[in-house]
Write a protein that binds this DNA or RNA. Structure first.
Length: 581
RNA sequence: CGGGGCGUAGCGCAGUCCGGCUAGCGCACCUGCUUUGGGAGCAGGGGGUCGGAGGUUCGAAUCCUCUCGCCCCGACCA
C-alpha cells in the first residue's frame, strides 16, 4: 500500500479531550476519529488492525470447531421479555419502535437471539455440542463512555455461545474457549491474566475474565504471586493483613486504646481520617460502622478503619440494600453519623455484620454520643456480630488460598467467559431429548472478546514517547518502506524493488512514497508504529546498503538492497512460526 | 444520575475575573524563492455565526438566564 494514497491524517497536537495514552496515539497517528461521545470512526489504519485481530479470532474459533454466523443488531422485544432482561436492563438498552408500533431494541449482546435459534434448531442430544459465534456490532447506551475506544456505545464484539447436553459437556466447551483465548491474546502480543469474575446479570455459576494489565484499565485485579490465585476485586476474597497492636511506631497515646471503655472528646471529628489524625492513631485501630437498610431492616456493617466495605460481598449475605440516610441513622441508632459505635444495639434488633479483621484486638470507635469516641473496644466484650469477609481486597492483604501477600493491578477487560447453565434455555424453551427420551434444557455458555479493546490494550502495553509499537501479528502492516530520495534518482526504484519483493513474499508492506522531508517521514513512521522499517537513503545506497530498523529497539542493521527483502521474509516467517501461525 | 472542567479558524491555545478601537498567537493550509537523513527558512496570503437561544447595555467572546455538546471523578457496566 502506498501511504500517499491512504487516509492517514497524523497530527502533531492531540485534541485535549484525550487522556488515555492509547486514545491520544490513535488520534495522533490517524487511526480513529471521534464522531460523538462513545462513537468512533475507524480510519484505514485502525480498521486494518481490527481486521488482523478479527482474523486471529476467526482462526482460533474455527480451530475449536466453532461456526461463524451473523445475527441482526435490530431485535424484537419478545425474546428479551421472555428472559426478563427487557425489564431488568434499564437505560443501558437502546429501544425503539418500528412503524407498526412494535417494541424493538438494538442488541447489546446476543444470548436471547442465539438461544431462540437453538430452541428452533436443536432437538436432539445427537446435535450437540455446538458452538456458534459471530463478530458483530453491539450497542449499549453507556452511562459514561470513556478512554477513547476502550468504552464506547457502539463496538465490535466476538461473541460465541456453546450448547451442550450436560454440565460436564459445558465444562469441555468452556475449557476449549479458555485455551483458545490464551492463544488469541498471546498471538496479539498482550500481557494478560485470566481472573475469576462476577457473573453479574448474565447469571450462571462460573465466570472468568481476561485482563490486560494497564494503568488505563477500569478494573482492579488481585494477583497472588505465590499460588496463582487471580480474581477481579469485584469478587476477590482476601484476608486482611493483621495489625499487631504491639508493633513499633506506636506512641504513648496508643496505650490509651488498650484502656477499655475510656471515652475521648473528639469535637467535630467524624470520619476515620479525621479522628485518626486528631488522636494520632493509625486507621487500622478504628472500627468503621456503616448503617445500611436491607429488605429486612437496618444492618450495621463493620470494617476496620483502613478497609473499604465491599457492597457486593455484603449483598451476598444480607440481600439488596441501600445506604441509610443521615436522619435515618439518628432515628435508628440515636446518634448522628460519625459517632456510631457497634456497642449496645442488641436491644434494637439491628443485625451486625463485621469483617474478620475486627475479630481480635481492641479498637477505637464512635461512642454513640456526639463528639465522643471510645477506646479499647473489643469484639465479644463490647459487641457481638456475625463474622464475614466484607472488605474490598487491597495490596498487601493475604491470599485467601495460600496466605501469601497479594498484589493489585489495574487492567483492561479484553474477554470474558461464562458458564450460563440453563437460564436462557429455560426461558426460551430451548429443550432437547436425551438418550433416554427425556426432555432437558440445553446447557449453555457464552464467551466474549472485544477486538477494539485488544487494540487499545496493545497500544497501552507497547508504546514509547514517539508513538505506537505494534505487536507483529496485529500491526496494520508488516513493514514500512521509507525512501529518502533527496535528489538521488536511484532511491525510488530501489525502494520499489524491495517493496515488490516483500509483497510477492506474502508480506504486507506500506511504502511512504510521499514527497516529504526525511524528518517528517521518520516521525510519522515512529508514530504509526509498524514494527519494522526499511530506510532507503541516497547516502547509504551509494555504499550499496539499505537500513533495517526495529521500531522497538531503534536498532539499525545495514544490509544490501538485494538481500533486504529476503532477510525480512525469513525473520517474519520465523516470528510467525513462534506465534503458532 | 451526582460532582467538577471546558466549548474562540482544521488542531492546540490566549483574551472572559474588571464589557470598549480591526478578536489574537502557534501549528496546519495556499503562493513564491531557498532548503532536503529526525516534524525546514524567509516573504506574502486565505480562513471566525467566539457552541446555540434569549436578555442587560450606547456597546457583549466578556455580564445574566436558559439550552446543547465534549472531557474528567463518582455511581453504573449483561
Amino acid at each position: 500500500m502506498r501511504l500517499s494514497k491512504m487516509l492517514v491524517p497524523t497530527v502533531r497536537e492531540v485534541p485535549s479531550e484525550a487522556v488515555a495514552e492509547s486514545h491520544k496515539l490513535m488520534l495522533r497517528a490517524g487511526y480513529v476519529r471521534q464522531l460523538a461521545a462513545g462513537l468512533y470512526i475507524y480510519l484505514p489504519l485502525g480498521w486494518k488492525v481490527l481486521a488482523r485481530i478479527n482474523r486471529i479470532l476467526r482462526e482460533e474459533m474455527d480451530a475449536i470447531g466453532a461456526q461463524e454466523v451473523s445475527m441482526p443488531v435490530l431485535q424484537p422485544a419478545e425474546q428479551w421479555q421472555q428472559t426478563g432482561r427487557w425489564s431488568e436492563i434499564k437505560e443501558e438498552m437502546f429501544r425503539l419502535k418500528d412503524r407498526g408500533g412494535r417494541d424493538m431494541c438494538l442488541g447489546m449482546t446476543h444470548e436471547e437471539i442465539m438461544t431462540w435459534l437453538a430452541s428452533r434448531e436443536i432437538r436432539s442430544y445427537k446435535q450437540m455440542p455446538q458452538i456458534w459465534y459471530q463478530i458483530q456490532t453491539k450497542l449499549r447506551d453507556e452511562a459514561r463512555p470513556k478512554s477513547g475506544i476502550l468504552r464506547t456505545r457502539e463496538f465490535l464484539m466476538k461473541d460465541s455461545y456453546s450448547f451442550d447436553i450436560s454440565v460436564e459437556a459445558l465444562q469441555r466447551s468452556y475449557k476449549l474457549h479458555e485455551d483458545a483465548y490464551h492463544r488469541i491474546f498471546a498471538r496479539c502480543g498482550l500481557k494478560f491474566y485470566q481472573v475469576e469474575s462476577d457473573t453479574g446479570m448474565m447469571g450462571g455459576a462460573v465466570a472468568h475474565e481476561f485482563m490486560a494489565v494497564s494503568p488505563a484499565g477500569e478494573d482492579d485485579i488481585v494477583i497472588c504471586p505465590s499460588c496463582g490465585y487471580q480474581a477481579n476485586v469485584e469478587i476477590a476474597g482476601s484476608v486482611p493483613s493483621p495489625f499487631a497492636s504491639g508493633e513499633p511506631g506506636k506512641n504513648e497515646k496508643s496505650e490509651k486504646s488498650a484502656a477499655p471503655g475510656e471515652e475521648v472528646h473528639t469535637p467535630e471529628k467524624r470520619t476515620v481520617e479525621e479522628v485518626s489524625r486528631f488522636l494520632k492513631e493509625p486507621p487500622q485501630r478504628f472500627i468503621k460502622s456503616i448503617l445500611v437498610i436491607s429488605e429486612e431492616g437496618p444492618v450495621l456493617a463493620l470494617v476496620r478503619g483502613d478497609q473499604q466495605l465491599h457492597e457486593k460481598k455484603l449483598q451476598r449475605i444480607i440481600g439488596p440494600f441501600r445506604p441509610a440516610l443521615k436522619p435515618e441513622v439518628k432515628d435508628i441508632l440515636g446518634v448522628e453519623a460519625g459517632f456510631i459505635g457497634p456497642m449496645g444495639h442488641g436491644d434494637k434488633k439491628i443485625k451486625i455484620i463485621a469483617d474478620f479483621a475486627l475479630r481480635t484486638g481492641s479498637f477505637i470507635t464512635g461512642a454513640n454520643k456526639p463528639h465522643y469516641h471510645r477506646l479499647g473496644v473489643t469484639a465479644g466484650v463490647d459487641f457481638s456480630a456475625s463474622w464475614h469477609d466484607i472488605q474490598v481486597a487491597k495490596e498487601g492483604d493475604l491470599c485467601p488460598k495460600c496466605g501469601h501477600p497479594v498484589k493489585m493491578e489495574k487492567a483492561i477487560e479484553i474477554g470474558n467467559i461464562f458458564q450460563l447453565g440453563t437460564k436462557y434455555s429455560q426461558a426460551l424453551n430451548a429443550f432437547f431429548l436425551d438418550e433416554a427420551g427425556e426432555e432437558k434444557p440445553i446447557i449453555m455458555g457464552s464467551y466474549g472478546i472485544g477486538p477494539a479493546r485488544i487494540a487499545a490494550a496493545a497500544i497501552e502495553q507497547n508504546h514509547d514517547k514517539d508513538g505506537m509499537i505494534w505487536p507483529e501479528n496485529i500491526a496494520p502492516f508488516d513493514v514500512e518502506v521509507i525512501p529518502i530520495a533527496g535528489d538521488d534518482p536511484d532511491v525510488d526504484p530501489a525502494a520499489w524493488r524491495i517493496y515488490e519483493e516483500l509483497a510477492e513474499a506474502g508480506i504486507e508492506p506500506l511504502i511512504d512514497d510521499r514527497d516529504l522531508r526525511a524528518g517528517v517521514k521518520f516521525k510519522d513512521a515512529d508514530l504509526i508504529g509498524i514494527p519494522r522499517h526499511i530506510i532507503i537513503g541516497g547516502r547509504t545506497l551509494k555504499e550499496g546498503l539499505v537500513e533495517l530498523k526495529d521500531r522497538r529497539t531503534k536498532e539499525i542493521r545495514k544490509v544490501s538492497p538485494q538481500e533486504a527483502a529476503a532477510i525480512l521474509k525469513e525473520e517474519i516467517s520465523i516470528r510467525k512460526a513462534e506465534c503458532g501461525l
